[in-house]
Design a protein around this nucleic acid. Structure first.
Length: 281
DNA sequence: AGCTACTCCTGGTAGC
DNA sequence: TGCTACCAGGAGTAGC
């Protein structure tokens, strides 16, 4: 599932092929991918615009659009679970799951491909509104250990759903939350308000270290879905400590990893390293 | 405030 | 082999 490291990888690989290109046409095969806009309105908004830059906010891809050197809105993409981006030569076949194709100058095409149709590629004219409610970037300067510890202290909520909440920290998903909690030796059911300064600092460091290490390895691929825009799998799945490793030994203590469900999400813990909280109230 | 349940989707897989 | 039933899950929403 594309989380922050996978989206960062996609942006880095797509950026050099996309920046400077002008959008010459939009082929919309699944209109809902546009997030509410009609294909016609979308086409009118983007055709003729030039991609000025490509960057990432949380799990969103952002393409700045310009007309005559002036800002002309933004393309905001979210891959959700199975979305992919490809910039290919004209004539490349995106297969049955191609949802939107943007024809570019110089014979290139940006393809948005998505098996499950949950992904979105929206045109927006107000970026602040599009990102209202997103919490801090976990790799950004504003995400300090002190601010994080203070934020945890004032929330009476279990760690796992809190860390998945994009308004609390923006960019974590199921995989990296489980990995970071294990590294910090904190149980996913632990109440945030009970986490003291030292474990909070550990969790902060674990989040940043895990995300940075996953970016270095171009993300994680463990099923048929996530691939880089070059079609390559990431390799961080080989570093997983707990995710998807139920029954296999914990890399720290050797005890078998257990799988539980927290907030309808598969959750992986080491019963030795992450003791279950005694009181949960 | 924070919980659960449900929705959107489809490929993969467990069970028979 | 072939069928069905269920699972995975990011984010949004509704209801409690």
């Amino acid at each position: 599932m594309p989380e922050l490291p996978e989206v960062e990888t996609v942006v880095r690989l797509v950026r050099p092929k996309l920046v400077g290109r002008t959008i010459e046409g939009a082929d919309v095969r699944w209109e809902r991918t546009l997030g509410g806009a009609s294909a016609g309105a979308f086409r009118r908004a983007v055709v003729g615009a030039r991609v000025a830059s490509a960057w990432r906010r949380a799990k969103y891809l952002v393409f700045d659009l310009e007309r005559d050197g002036a800002t002309a809105g933004w393309l905001v993409g979210h891959l959700r679970m199975t979305g992919r981006m490809h910039v290919e030569r004209d004539g490349w076949d995106p297969g049955p799951y191609g949802r939107v194709a943007l024809r570019l100058d110089r014979g290139k095409v940006l393809h948005f491909v998505d098996v499950r149709k949950f992904g979105r590629l929206r045109f927006v004219t107000d970026l602040a509104e599009a990102f209202a409610g997103l919490g801090p970037e976990p790799l950004g300067d504003e995400f300090t250990a002190e601010a994080f510890a203070a934020a945890l202290r004032r929330r009476r909520r279990m760690l796992k759903p809190l860390l998945l909440d994009q308004s609390f920290v923006a960019g974590l998903g199921n995989i990296y939350v489980d990995e970071a909690l294990h590294e910090a030796r904190l149980h996913p059911l632990r109440l945030a308000s009970t986490v003291g300064p030292e474990p909070a600092r550990r969790l902060h460091a674990a989040i940043r270290r895990t995300l940075a290490a996953a970016i270095e390895r171009e993300g994680s691929s463990f099923d048929a879905f996530y691939r880089t825009p070059e079609g390559q799998p990431g390799s961080y799945q080989h570093q997983f400590r707990v995710y998807g490793r139920a029954g296999r030994p914990c890399p720290e203590c050797g005890r078998p990893i257990r799988r539980l469900v927290v907030g309808q999400r598969g959750t992986h813990v080491c019963p030795g390293c992450q003791p279950r909280p005694r009181t949960r109230r």
